[in-house]
Amino acid sequence: MFKFWQKAMALMVGLATSLPLFAQEKAAMADLMRSNGKIYIVVAVCLTILIGLFLYVTSIDRKISRLEKENKNQS
């Protein structure tokens, strides 16, 4: 019986000491940024740039369409 408890204790101590090792083996990610919500700022910045880019391309597209129409009417 004593032997069983000895084994069980050894196992528990072993597990407890190896737990931080398991944690260290996990690859580091930007978990803090996700937990405090700052990642949403990054998403918002990128979306702003994307929307600006698309608005610009759309405005060029419209300008060319207008020029094409004018050109068609002239000739």
Binding site: A27, I39, V43
Partner: peptide, 18 residues
């Protein structure tokens, strides 16, 4: 791409990380 690309889970890999 931007919303899901930044917010969804990705595999945790060494060297590559985030």
């Amino acid at each position: 791409t931007i919303v899901a690309g930044f917010l969804l889970e990705v595999p945790r890999l060494f060297i590559l990380n985030e």
